[in-house]
Amino acid sequence: MTTSKNTDPFAQIVSQNPRMQEVIEKAKKFALLDAPLLIQGETGTGKEVIAKACHDFSERRDHTFLAVNCAGIPGEDAETEMFGRRNKDGEFIGFFEYADGGTVLLDGVEELPLTLQAKLLRFLSDGTFRRVGEEEEHYANVRVICTAQQPLQHYVEQGKMRNDLFHRLNVLSLTLPLLRERQEDIALLSHQFIQEISEKLGIFPPHLDEHLLRYLQDYPWPGNLRELYNALYRACSLCQNNRLKIEDLGLAPQNSHGQETASFIDEFITEGSTLDEMVGRFEAAVLHKFYAKYPSSRKLATRLGVSHTAIANKLRQYGIGKS
C-alpha cells in the first residue's frame, strides 16, 4: 500500500508523552535522509511501526518496504538471502536487490553472523555487493534501517557486534521508551487499539470504564505495546454486554510489592544521576532514619554492623547529627 504525500504516516502513532513526541519529531527528520537508521528499544515498543512510518514519510514510499528478521535467516544461507547467488542452477536475487529503490529493515541486526556484518558494512558504504558464486559487482539503492532490543554497544562488548559496524550504524539513532514510562498514553493507545480490534472482529467497540483503565495504567507491561494490544484483543473477543472485564485481559496478577519497591527506588533517582549519587541518597536516607532511634555513632555502628569510624565519617559526610 502506498502513502499519499499529503498523508502523515506518523499521525497513527499517538502520544502525549514528551519523550515519545521527541522520538517522533526526530524520526520525521531522519526519514528524509538516506543514511542508515538505528532504532533501539525493548521488544514490543513499536520499532517496526516507526521504521515503516519513516519509509512512508520518505521519497521511497512508492517502493518496496521489506522487513527481515535477522534471527530467522539460516546461518548457512545468510549471505545468499542478503546478496543473492548465481550457480549452475540459475540466479537467486537477494533481499537488497529485491528492494532496490526502497527500504530494508534488518530486525535484530545483532543476530547477523560477524562475517556477514563485514559484508553489510561494505554494502552500507557504497551500495555495492557480489552475489555468492560470482565476481561481478552489483548495486542496489536501498535505505537500511536496523533495530536492536538493547544498545548496540552492549553487543559489541559481548563480541556479537563488530565495532566498525556499530560506529557506522550509531549515527542516526532513535531509542523508544517503554510503555510503563508512557503512562499518559495508556488511555489513548487503549482506545485506538479497541477501535482497530473491533473493526477486525466486526463488533461495536466495547466500553472501557475508569476502573479497567486504571488497572491498565498501573500494570507494568513487560511486553510493552504488543502486550497491551494482545490483552485488549483477548478482552474484546470475550466481552459480553459491550463491556470489557479485567479477568478477560488474561494478564498475570500484579505484584503490588514489586510496584511498591519500584516506587521506593524512584525516590532516589533523578535525571542524569550517577549510580554513586543515587546510592549516596539512599545511604543518607537510611542513616537519617536510624540516627533518630540510635543518636550515638557507637550505638548506630553496632546496629548497622559497621565500624564506629566508618559511621562517624558517614554522619559527617551527610551532615547528620551534631554539627
Rank of each mutant, 00 (worst) to 15 (best):
L228R: 03
P220C: 04
P177N: 08
G159C: 10
R180E: 06
I194W: 09
G223M: 10
P206I: 08
I186M: 06
Y215G: 00
P222R: 09
Y219V: 06
I203W: 01
Y215Q: 02
Y219I: 04
I186G: 04
H167T: 15
E184T: 08
Y219W: 04
D164V: 14
R182I: 02
H207S: 07
R180C: 13
F193M: 12
E227C: 04
Y219E: 03
Q195L: 13
R226I: 01
L176A: 11
G159T: 13
F204L: 10
L169D: 11
T175F: 02
D218L: 15
Q183A: 10
L225C: 15
T175Q: 15
L165R: 08
E184L: 01
L179D: 09
D218I: 10
D185I: 03
G202K: 12
H167Q: 12
I194Q: 01
L201M: 05
F204N: 14
H207D: 11
D209A: 07
H191C: 04
N170V: 03
L188F: 15
V171P: 08
P205N: 11
M161Q: 07
P205D: 01
W221E: 03
I194H: 04
S173R: 14
Q183N: 15
E227M: 07
L225I: 14
R180F: 08
P220N: 05
F166D: 12
L169V: 05
Q195D: 15
D209K: 00
L201V: 03
D164W: 06
R214M: 09
S198H: 06
L179G: 08
H191M: 09
E210S: 15
P206T: 12
R214A: 09
L213A: 05
E184D: 12
L216R: 13
L216C: 14
L169R: 03
F166H: 15
V171G: 05
I203H: 00
S190W: 00
P177L: 07
E184M: 03
W221N: 00
S173C: 03
S198I: 02
P222V: 10
M161D: 08
Y215N: 00
F204H: 14
L169P: 07
L174S: 06
L189K: 09
T175D: 12
A187S: 09
E181G: 14
W221K: 00
L201Q: 09
V171Y: 11
Y215C: 02
E199I: 00
G159W: 13
D185C: 07
L176F: 12
E196G: 00
H191I: 04
L213R: 01
R226F: 04
L188K: 10
E181T: 14
F166E: 06
L174C: 06
T175K: 05
E210W: 02
I186F: 05
A187F: 01
Q192E: 10
P177G: 11
W221G: 00
Q195P: 07
H167E: 13
Q195Y: 09
L179A: 15
Y215V: 00
L172M: 14
F193Q: 12
A187G: 02
L189H: 12
I186R: 02
E210H: 08
N163M: 11
E196V: 01
Q183M: 07
L189C: 08
L201I: 00
